[in-house]
Simulated scan of single mutants.
Amino acid sequence: MRLGLSTPIVVQVPGIASPWEATAGPEELTRIARATDELGFDHLTCADHVGVPAAAATVRGATYWDPLATLSYLAAHTSRIRLATSVLVLGYHHPLALAKSYGTLDRLSNGRVVLGVGVGSLAEEFALLGAAWEDRGTLADAALTRLRRAWGRREVEDFVLEPHAVRTTVPIWVGGRTRRSLRRAVTLGTGWVPFGLEAEQIAELLATVTVPEGFDIVLSPGAPLDPQGDEADSLRRLTALRDAGATHLTCTVRANDAGHYCEQLAALRELVDRKLR
């Protein structure tokens, strides 16, 4: 399994984010990103919300750094780790605009972009942006098809998109928690990023489809891990995800500050290498 990071600070969900993240900024973020890069982590992530309804903020959190700006900044401070959107809401963006903006990031980062995409779940945010809520799944499928055709190509639909991504293929991880999201991932993507499901539920859903060769199954343990303080619990939770079919893990860790966060990441890297290889 490849090990990735659900980047702290840039997304602060209650129950997952630590108190120190509320006042952390670019210095702490850079330190953690560089640590993941040096430790050989596969990817780091950033989510996509313009605004969260105030009534939902106590559950979803209110802090969501812009993914394009954030990942562009982190690209300049790292050299190898992949830069994953987790996830872009397709209904909020024109597919050719995504091909241009994230294609530019792909060029700047020497081909390190991973596009995590989803259909969205906040009706209020769709209304805020003037995006179509009804039939958003069907519209997302059409947008994803156009995005795949446009990626890494200079001329698209009689328009020149310059610059563009360095390759005409890109990892596309489809988010969701339903059988339909899994079918969308198998049909139009290269991986699946389920959320809010137990390992047993994920394994049951995966048993309903034929997973293509090389297909990525990107799973998360949910609550932060504590590899230094409770190695046994961390190992138990990661093993359950491996047994459910994970090819990639996207993790967070408990920490008191950025320095402790980096120490926890090193301990997590060592645990995975020692016990799960």
Rank of each mutant, 00 (worst) to 15 (best):
L3R: 05
T7F: 01
Q12N: 02
Q12T: 07
A17K: 08
E21P: 06
A22Q: 14
A22I: 09
E27H: 13
I32T: 02
R34S: 04
R34E: 13
T36F: 00
E38W: 00
E38A: 11
F41V: 04
L44C: 00
T45K: 00
A54I: 09
A57K: 02
A57Y: 00
V59K: 09
R60A: 14
G61S: 03
L71S: 01
A75L: 03
A75I: 00
H77Q: 11
S79Y: 00
A84P: 03
V89I: 15
H94I: 06
K100I: 06
S101H: 12
G103D: 05
G103W: 00
L105K: 04
D106L: 02
N110T: 13
R112P: 01
V113A: 11
G116P: 10
V117A: 08
G120F: 09
G120D: 09
S121W: 15
L122R: 06
L122G: 01
L122F: 12
A123C: 03
A123P: 13
F126W: 09
F126D: 06
L129P: 13
W133F: 12
A140Q: 01
A142M: 11
L147R: 08
A150G: 13
W151K: 04
R154Y: 09
D158M: 14
D158L: 13
H164W: 08
A165H: 08
R167W: 11
T169S: 15
V170G: 03
P171A: 11
G176H: 12
R179S: 14
V186G: 02
V186A: 05
L188R: 10
L188Y: 12
W192L: 07
L197R: 00
Q201G: 02
I202K: 02
E204P: 03
P212V: 10
G214F: 10
S220N: 13
P224E: 12
L225I: 13
D226S: 15
P227W: 11
Q228R: 15
L241D: 04
D243R: 12
A246S: 04
A246Q: 06
T247M: 08
H248Q: 14
T250V: 14
V253K: 07
A255H: 04
A255C: 03
N256I: 04
A258K: 07
Y261E: 07
Q264E: 12
A267Y: 09
D273S: 13
K275A: 14
